[in-house]
Design a protein around this nucleic acid. Structure first.
Length: 280
DNA sequence: CCTTGAACCTGCGGGC
DNA sequence: TGCCCGCAGGTTCAAG
């Protein structure tokens, strides 16, 4: 479910409730998500204060007292919510952190593609899940110059390339289609041919992600903000899941395609391949 | 190195 | 009603 905007919305929702609170108890209702939940996590976190929550790519990083931080990923269907003591445990509520003020942090993930693991603070930068990630899309590091260089050796379609987390992090299946629409670039364009349009693509990715964060992310099926409120960026999709509906810019029907097994949506007119003249 | 496809797992909606 | 199929916001791994 979550791309960068949903993870960032989760972080922003959790932070004011968790920062400065102590973890009284951790309860596991499941051993394994995508990987086993770190053995001994209950003991390692007990009594520790939550100092901060940060985000890298689509990972949440809980900075807690002691030797370890907690690295978590929401996979396709994961979410965090806050409850009160005595709450009704739902199916797929896999982990509960009981806080010192009786608030309960619940990790819920039907498909269990997510993750929760301890990592040593000293090893964050070199952690295998984090060390090969590309730049943060909303940072200055993600520039036209950088992207042009990253695309130069890539011949695959631009859509799958911007979803490659070693090129740029945080862009998933929704925001890839939305970004390419804003940039007026066809998803099938070979990535190396997009190097010359890197500036508009960088701007489009940044603006889509910023707008989505400002809207509390997108709720397609089950994603909710920490408060339980739905995201509402889905009401502002230009192309995603709009097959056959009129393009917001030109009125032509949005088309659906598949790239690397994932659905892609685009406007065949607005995103006609740049640099290729229409035949007549 | 780059790319693709399969795998992980559950739930839901559509067609028959 | 029930079953089977395809599909769903991600990532890793193996193989070409």
């Amino acid at each position: 479910m979550p791309e960068l905007p949903e993870v960032e919305t989760t972080r922003l929702g959790l932070l004011p409730h968790l920062q400065g609170k102590c973890i009284a108890q951790v309860t596991l209702h499941c051993d394994t998500l995508r990987w086993p939940i770190t053995k001994g996590i209950e003991k390692a976190l007990k009594g520790m204060e939550i100092l901060d929550i940060s985000r890298r790519a689509k990972y949440l990083l809980f900075d807690v007292q002691g030797e370890y931080n907690v690295l978590s990923h929401l996979g396709m269907s994961g979410s965090f919510r806050l409850e009160r003591k005595g709450f009704n445990l739902l199916t797929h509520d896999h982990v509960v952190w009981s806080l010192s003020n009786n608030a309960q942090l619940v990790y819920h993930d039907p498909r269990r593609f997510g993750a929760m693991m301890l990592i040593k603070k000293a090893e964050i930068a070199m952690h295998p899940l984090l060390c090969k990630l590309g730049p943060e899309p909303l940072s200055r590091e993600f520039s036209a110059n950088y992207l042009a260089g990253a695309l130069a050796s890539r011949k695959g379609p631009i859509k799958t390339t911007i979803m490659d987390q070693s090129v740029v992090v945080g862009v998933g299946n929704i925001y890839a289609s939305e970004s390419l629409f804003r940039a007026k670039l066809h998803p099938d364009m070979p990535a190396c041919n997009v190097a010359q349009h890197a500036e508009i693509l960088v701007k489009s990715i940044k603006s889509v992600l910023r707008d989505a964060i400002a809207s509390g992310g997108s709720t397609l099926r089950d994603y909710k903000q920490v408060s339980g409120e739905l995201g509402y960026f889905q009401h502002r999709f230009d192309v995603y899941e709009r097959k056959g509906q009129p393009c917001v810019a030109c009125g032509d029907a949005i088309v659906h395609a598949v790239h690397a097994g994932r659905s892609t949506y685009s406007c065949p007119t607005c995103q006609a391949q740049r640099g290729i003249r229409k035949k007549h």
